[in-house]
Design a protein around this nucleic acid. Structure first.
Length: 221
DNA sequence: AAGCCGCCCAACCGCTCTTCG
DNA sequence: ACGAAGAGCGGTTGGGCGGCT
């Protein structure tokens, strides 16, 4: 049984916020604060919105001192560097950019920065005669690695379930791989693992190239 | 002029983490 | 120690808009 929903979905309005709703929310929070309880907030104001929706609207749009408009080169650089070291920890990355929200940063990364960097990497790879360009496979040839990963995921999942755990500790992975290899009669598992190793190498190589691309870009500013 | 397509971004969804009784 | 409720977060979706054919 899943947890109870945070609000009565049947009686909650969804979709874009009206100027009237914005005004009510903004005015209330400016005068009374959030009260530390977003769930109760919409009822106090008389808004037919989910508390989570109010929180998001305030944080991403109504909050004072928010920066609108394009990101600067300096912000690009900060996002890239933090993404390389932290991964998709958007809230942490956004905290280093005054006036920007995690949603802003996430959207900006997904829609522009990622393409910008991948384009730079693809160009670099092309210049070096690397026709692969991406992380794995090619458009014409779907990566066979998918079914391999599925196989591995399935086995890890089953093992986790058997041990009553929701995840597999890294230390158990070698044991699982070892037992799988023992069951492997046709050499398929071995081939799959070789493929996975190759893919991991490619990912590491890609990360390294991406970081050097960003360093070049930073140096040229 | 109209239809199509891709991009952008606001908002939602579902999950994990934290707090509190 | 445990479970419920709220807060926070990251991934994903869908509608609006502009450019292209």
């Amino acid at each position: 049984m899943g947890r109870a929903p945070c609000c009565d979905k049947a009686n909650v309005k969804k979709g874009p916020w009206s100027p009237d709703e914005d005004a009510k929310l903004k005015s209330y929070i400016e005068h009374h604060g959030t009260g530390g309880n977003w769930i109760a907030l919409p009822h106090k104001i008389g808004l037919k919105r989910c508390g989570k929706s109010c929180r998001l609207r305030w944080l991403n749009y109504l909050r004072p001192n928010l920066k609108r408009g394009g990101f600067s080169e300096e912000e690009d650089d900060i996002i890239c560097r933090l993404f390389v070291s932290l991964g998709s920890r958007w809230s942490v990355i956004a905290s280093q950019l005054p006036g920007r929200t995690d949603n802003d940063v996430k959207n900006y990364w997904n829609t522009r920065l990622k393409k910008k960097l991948l384009g730079k990497h693809a160009k670099g790879a092309e210049a070096k005669g690397d026709d692969n360009g991406g992380i794995t496979g090619s458009p014409q040839q779907p990566a066979p690695i998918d079914h391999v990963r599925h196989e591995l995921d399935g086995r890890f999942y089953i093992d986790a379930a058997n041990h009553g755990s929701s995840s597999v500790m890294p230390s158990t992975v070698p044991c699982l791989v070892s037992s799988w290899l023992q069951e492997d009669s046709g050499g398929q598992a071995l081939q799959c693992l070789n493929d996975l190793t190759t893919e991991l190498d490619e990912i590491l190589r890609f990360n390294s190239l991406m970081y050097s691309s960003m360093s070049d870009a930073t140096a040229s500013i």
